[in-house]
């Protein structure tokens, strides 16, 4: 079996598992596959994993495991990693585009020489992949947005972006789960709660999930 990944020491209590260094759904599927294999195996001494675009950070307790031991276990599991993405129906995110909820929609349209309606159509017709979660609790980095609506970030970030705001940052799109500072162009807002500590898991979107945006209008 060919080597799927490289294990790099990350401090004295983690391993950085590096797959092919690119943003690619197949590579990302391997990351989530390995993460799931590790959690199913319930290996004593593994604390948790952090999946990212093309890598998985595996945290361990140095009292119970050391680097060579964990690399050996990971290599065993590596043979079972799958390139296939998780087959699941997309999670539907209702979104109100534009107006007070999407103050940058017109800017995104103008920047790309499109009408606001066209931006909405392009944004809501794609299926997105949750590559990873980070930045704030529950913030999903979504891949799969059309380059036709790619827009550079704000020159200086807003101090407060309301929870549920949907933004475009470069050729990525994402949803702000909690009120936080943010530099992405805000095109709309979802009424869904993406982060709720009363629930376990506390997030609506999980790494590896598929997402679709459904345009809605505000109930007056």
């Amino acid at each position: 079996m060919r080597k799927q990944f490289k294990c790099v020491p990350y401090g004295d209590s983690a391993v950085l598992v590096e797959f092919t260094n690119k943003i690619d759904p197949k590579v990302n599927a391997m990351v989530h596959s390995l993460s799931a294999l590790i959690s199913n195996e319930k290996i004593e001494g593994i604390v948790e994993t952090i999946p990212a675009y093309s890598s998985l950070t595996v945290l361990y307790d140095p009292k119970l495991l050391d680097f060579p031991a964990i690399v050996e276990r990971l290599n065993e599991l590596g043979d079972k990693c799958k390139e296939r993405e998780k087959f699941s129906s997309p999670i539907k995110i209702p979104i109100i585009y534009g107006g007070k909820y999407g103050p940058d929609l017109q800017f995104v349209a103008n920047y790309n020489r499109l009408s606001a309606e066209e931006v909405i159509k392009i944004h809501s017709s794609a299926e997105y992949l949750v590559y990873m979660i980070g930045f704030t609790p529950g913030f999903a980095y979504l891949g799969g947005m059309s380059k036709k609506i790619a827009t550079p970030r704000l020159e200086s970030p807003r101090k407060k972006v309301p929870a549920g705001s949907v933004g475009i940052g470069g050729d990525q799109t994402g949803i702000y789960p909690i009120e936080s500072p943010g530099g992405w162009r805000i095109i709309g807002r979802t009424p869904l709660k993406l982060f709720d500590v009363e629930k376990d898991p506390p997030v609506l979107l999980k790494p590896g999930d598929k997402v679709r945006f459904i345009p809605i209008i505000e109930d007056k």
Binding site: Y10, S13, L16, N21, Y53, S54, T57, L59
Partner: peptide
């Protein structure tokens, strides 16, 4: 870098 996991002490 392509974003990856961040740890205490990194």
């Amino acid at each position: 870098i392509l974003s990856n996991g961040v740890l205490l002490g990194a």
